[in-house]
Simulated scan of single mutants.
Amino acid sequence: MNQRTREYLQGRFGDHYRRSEITLPPAADKREWGYIPFTAGAGTTMVRHKALIDLGDLSSFLARKRPRHVYFSAGRYNDPGTRSMEEKGWHESDLVFDLDGDHLPGVDPETDSYAQMLHSCKDALLRLLDFLTNDFGFGPENTSIVFSGGRGYHVHVRDESVRTLDRAARREIVEYVLGDGLDSLDRLTQTETVAGMGVKNPVEKRSLQTDGGWGERVHSRLVELTDEVRAMDESDGLDHLREFDGIGEKGATKLYEAMDERYDELKSGNLEAAGQYTTTLTRLLFERVVREESAPIDEPVTTDINRLIRLPGSLHGGSGLVVTALAHDDVEAFDPLTDAVADTFRDHKIMIESETDQQVELDGEKHNISAGHCSVRESVGVFLMVRGRAEKAPE
């Protein structure tokens, strides 16, 4: 980034902050604050270990300093402005989750577009929210959802029950959400002894846990598959079951019959409705569920009680987009490449210089950028300049 570009971006970031109202996080005076200024060269400099009292009025501070990135800590401290983490006097932290689109399974940053990565990250976010709501019982009143402005989303859980958890306890939550440690279906099954042919011959009955958590997820997938097969004619149903590895003609027949004749038992979680084949099929579904329904969060962010996280309402210095807080009901409809575009950058066109022909999808349109000097919508120009893909040209 050359000097003209840097000075232009600094000025326009300052304009954004002069026009914006930033909402402080809870207990803002107990948190550490930090920022990265626009600096010459390729490197960055983090200014941190600041208390809110050091910054003064936050809106005035941001308009004056015009930082490239702004952060506050997940942790709450007795003395957040001291440089020593020990002397800060930690007493609690938000439980923070981070999802990055370019780190997701199945996403290739070399071939997938920015829009595609963000779409995949939205799916991962919805899975994470399902865990937080249905498995842990955290609702909208104690969780905050934020588009990071860059590659994905942050979720802050501020319920009192989690704020004092240490790193080890937070790691257990991470492992649960990732599905780590679920190395076999046995972890999700329960066994009870029932009477067999006479009191001297008890029988052990295995069933799938269906009252919540991963067990319920696997059970729902089993019931869904059963309903699909029951809706097919026999030939198609048998073919569908044989698509699963390890399910041959005999197994498919046994399963098909059990899905019809012992449907209620399957719905109750009985893993022996079709003998060993029920367990075999359920194990295959278990592996698929863990793979498809886990939430691929960034573990170090959640386990770090001192983490700095982006400030909602600030600008992301790597995209020019607004770090945007979202209501739970708005998540599915949210389009970051439209809804997180700063109003400050919407109403003007500017001149930029691009070394190559390139395309940008932003603000509901695909923009074709020609190599050399060209006029573009300012939001597009800012996006390209902060990502190092263009420089500011003279007007």
Rank of each mutant, 00 (worst) to 15 (best):
residue 327 A to K: 11
residue 335 D to N: 03
residue 318 G to M: 02
residue 361 E to P: 01
residue 318 G to D: 12
residue 319 S to V: 06
residue 351 M to Q: 15
residue 346 R to L: 09
residue 357 D to A: 12
residue 306 N to C: 07
residue 353 E to D: 09
residue 372 G to L: 05
residue 311 L to Y: 10
residue 367 H to M: 08
residue 357 D to L: 04
residue 356 T to M: 14
residue 361 E to Q: 11
residue 325 A to L: 10
residue 355 E to Y: 04
residue 311 L to H: 13
residue 363 D to F: 15
residue 380 V to A: 04
residue 357 D to W: 02
residue 375 S to M: 13
residue 341 V to I: 06
residue 376 V to Y: 01
residue 340 A to V: 02
residue 311 L to M: 15
residue 308 L to K: 09
residue 312 P to M: 09
residue 299 E to A: 15
residue 374 C to H: 08
residue 367 H to Y: 12
residue 306 N to H: 15
residue 359 Q to L: 07
residue 377 R to C: 00
residue 376 V to T: 04
residue 355 E to C: 06
residue 320 G to Y: 05
residue 336 P to Y: 01
residue 380 V to G: 03
residue 302 T to Q: 02
residue 339 D to H: 00
residue 312 P to R: 11
residue 310 R to I: 09
residue 342 A to K: 00
residue 317 G to I: 09
residue 374 C to A: 12
residue 343 D to C: 00
residue 378 E to Q: 11
residue 363 D to S: 13
residue 322 V to W: 01
residue 363 D to E: 15
residue 350 I to K: 03
residue 310 R to P: 08
residue 355 E to V: 06
residue 357 D to R: 10
residue 331 V to R: 01
residue 380 V to R: 03
residue 355 E to T: 11
residue 302 T to D: 05
residue 358 Q to P: 02
residue 351 M to P: 01
residue 358 Q to D: 13
residue 303 T to L: 05
residue 314 S to N: 13
residue 329 D to K: 14
residue 371 A to K: 10
residue 365 E to R: 14
residue 347 D to Q: 10
residue 316 H to S: 11
residue 374 C to M: 10
residue 360 V to Y: 10
residue 330 D to M: 02
residue 346 R to M: 09
residue 301 V to N: 05
residue 326 L to G: 07
residue 320 G to E: 10
residue 365 E to G: 13
residue 375 S to V: 12
residue 318 G to K: 12
residue 326 L to F: 10
residue 307 R to T: 08
residue 367 H to I: 15
residue 375 S to P: 02
residue 305 I to S: 09
residue 333 A to R: 13
residue 378 E to Y: 06
residue 368 N to V: 10
residue 305 I to P: 05
residue 302 T to C: 01
residue 365 E to D: 15
residue 378 E to C: 08
residue 304 D to T: 06
residue 368 N to W: 08
residue 306 N to K: 12
residue 378 E to K: 04
residue 372 G to C: 03
residue 338 T to R: 08
residue 346 R to T: 10
residue 341 V to A: 07
residue 377 R to L: 10
residue 354 S to A: 15
residue 304 D to W: 08
residue 328 H to N: 12
residue 363 D to V: 07
residue 376 V to L: 07
residue 328 H to C: 05
residue 364 G to H: 11
residue 369 I to W: 07
residue 309 I to V: 15
residue 334 F to T: 03
residue 309 I to T: 12
residue 334 F to P: 05
residue 305 I to T: 14
residue 372 G to S: 05
residue 322 V to Q: 06
residue 369 I to Y: 04
residue 358 Q to A: 10
residue 346 R to D: 07
residue 299 E to M: 13
residue 356 T to L: 11
